[in-house]
């Protein structure tokens, strides 16, 4: 539509503006007046990025930055909560009884106004491309592996401040008393992943229903790649409003 045509249109007025639009406009105004800037510029490292946008969330549109770029696709509707994945994770990675690297949440999702559906949602570290835990750690004890993009731990540097635990939007970290450091899922980096030549993780190989699909986003032959690149396939990430750009994706079948 050309500008001249636009000019002929009637003014819609502000009555039809949603409260969200109003808030966004007000936020812009505040940033101009400097009040908003007080919260970002005056801070030594701005929280704005980690906080995420109020709506939606960033999606990685650039070529995948790691080689291999590991990912996990959760085929959520197929999960039957057998917990074999949890057992495999515990035994493979020596996870103590008081903690867990991955778990399964049970959801009661409304499908019609009167009906609800039970869905099992496996959760684990999302190996985010923009991880708030890595940013928060004062001693680089937690870091993005430069080759694979996996969020890993250097336990010798962990001071036990637990800031990464507070920062993680997915409750994916716990303090392991035995090693006196934070422990988390690292896609079995030093255990199953190494054994399998980078092909699978303990939880993915243990799942009888093929719910957890581990793969490489750089490899077009990888099943995970194929699922995520199927035309019209709907997939989603957890808590997209946090702008962490996860590498764990959820699909239905």
């Amino acid at each position: 539509m050309k500008i001249k045509q636009l000019e002929k249109l009637a003014n819609e007025g502000v009555e039809s503006l949603s409260s969200k639009d109003r808030r966004q406009f007000l936020k812009f105004g505040l940033s101009v007046t400097g009040v908003f800037l007080g919260g970002t510029i005056l801070s030594l490292a701005s929280a704005k990025k980690a906080q995420g946008a109020l709506s939606g969330g960033k999606i990685l549109t650039t070529p995948y930055p790691y080689t291999p770029h590991y990912t996990m696709v959760i085929r959520e509707s197929d999960c039957i909560d057998c917990e074999l994945c949890l057992e495999a994770c515990r035994s493979t990675n020596h996870v103590p009884p008081e903690g867990y690297r991955t778990t399964i949440l049970e959801r009661s999702v409304p499908v019609t106004p009167t009906e609800r559906e039970r869905v099992f949602m496996p959760i684990l570290c999302n190996q985010c491309n923009s991880p708030s835990c890595v940013r928060a750690c004062p001693t680089t004890a937690t870091y993005k592996d430069k080759e694979t993009g996996i969020v890993r731990m250097d336990i010798s540097k962990c001071i036990g401040c637990k800031t990464c635990m507070v920062a993680c939007p997915y409750d994916a970290r716990y303090f392991d008393e035995a090693i006196r450091a934070i422990d988390k899922c690292n896609f079995c980096y030093d255990t199953k992943l190494k054994e399998s030549g980078g092909k699978t993780t303990a939880c993915a190989s243990a799942c009888p229903a093929g719910v957890r699909v581990f793969g490489d986003l750089k490899d077009p032959e990888s099943y995970a790649y194929k699922i995520l690149h199927t035309p019209d396939k709907v997939f989603w990430v957890l808590r997209p409003e946090k702008n962490t750009m996860p590498n764990v994706f959820y699909v239905n079948r």
Binding site: G39, A47, S132, A136, A167, C168, P169, Y170
Partner: peptide, 9 residues
Amino acid sequence: KSDMGLLGS
């Protein structure tokens, strides 16, 4: 503020 506010969750 950012020290605490960055904490994504």
